[in-house]
Simulated assay, not measured.
Amino acid sequence: MGRLGPTEIILILVIVVLLFGAKKLPDMARSLGKSARILKSEAKAMKSESKTDEAAPADPPSDPLQKRTIQAAPGDVTSSRPVAEPTDRTTQR
């Protein structure tokens, strides 16, 4: 009791195909895989970032107009773009 046999798994798969349609399942699986990869890379980046923070504090960039690249997601190069850092104009007159 409590175990799924091959008959129950096949029945569940048939119900899922009927509910979502066979055309949408590959897209859903692809987006689920992409989300899992993004989550994994973000977790890895957070771990390495916390190790780096413990080793030495980060210095702010010396050039305030230095351009850097912001990416929407790790590995997603299609949406990355260079941006100029904003300057603080409240102290300049």
Rank of each mutant, 00 (worst) to 15 (best):
residue 56 A to N: 08
residue 6 P to F: 10
residue 52 T to G: 02
residue 72 A to Q: 14
residue 26 P to V: 02
residue 38 I to S: 02
residue 4 L to A: 04
residue 14 V to M: 08
residue 79 S to M: 04
residue 7 T to D: 13
residue 48 S to R: 08
residue 63 D to M: 00
residue 44 K to I: 09
residue 11 L to R: 15
residue 87 T to S: 13
residue 70 I to M: 13
residue 79 S to Y: 09
residue 12 I to G: 02
residue 80 S to A: 12
residue 29 A to M: 12
residue 14 V to G: 03
residue 31 S to Y: 14
residue 9 I to K: 12
residue 77 V to P: 01
residue 76 D to Y: 09
residue 84 A to M: 10
residue 78 T to L: 09
residue 38 I to N: 02
residue 92 Q to T: 12
residue 13 L to A: 14
residue 18 L to Y: 11
residue 87 T to V: 15
residue 34 K to V: 07
residue 45 A to L: 11
residue 35 S to E: 14
residue 10 I to Y: 04
residue 84 A to R: 14
residue 14 V to T: 09
residue 91 T to M: 02
residue 82 P to V: 05
residue 73 A to I: 07
residue 89 R to Y: 09
residue 25 L to I: 15
residue 9 I to R: 11
residue 91 T to V: 06
residue 67 K to A: 10
residue 4 L to G: 01
residue 60 P to A: 06
residue 3 R to M: 12
residue 1 M to C: 05
residue 44 K to L: 13
residue 62 S to A: 11
residue 90 T to W: 07
residue 16 V to F: 08
residue 72 A to V: 13
residue 87 T to P: 03
residue 81 R to P: 01
residue 18 L to H: 10
residue 22 A to E: 02
residue 39 L to N: 14
residue 84 A to T: 13
residue 91 T to P: 00
residue 55 A to P: 00
residue 55 A to N: 07
residue 44 K to D: 14
residue 62 S to C: 03
residue 50 S to P: 00
residue 45 A to Q: 06
residue 19 L to V: 07
residue 92 Q to A: 09
residue 15 I to T: 06
residue 14 V to L: 12
residue 30 R to D: 06
residue 10 I to R: 15
residue 61 P to H: 05
residue 89 R to A: 09
residue 58 A to L: 12
residue 21 G to E: 03
residue 28 M to D: 00
residue 86 P to W: 01
residue 5 G to F: 12
residue 87 T to Y: 07
residue 31 S to H: 11
residue 44 K to G: 07
residue 89 R to K: 11
residue 83 V to A: 01
residue 39 L to P: 01
residue 5 G to M: 08
residue 81 R to T: 08
residue 75 G to P: 06
residue 39 L to R: 15
residue 65 L to K: 14
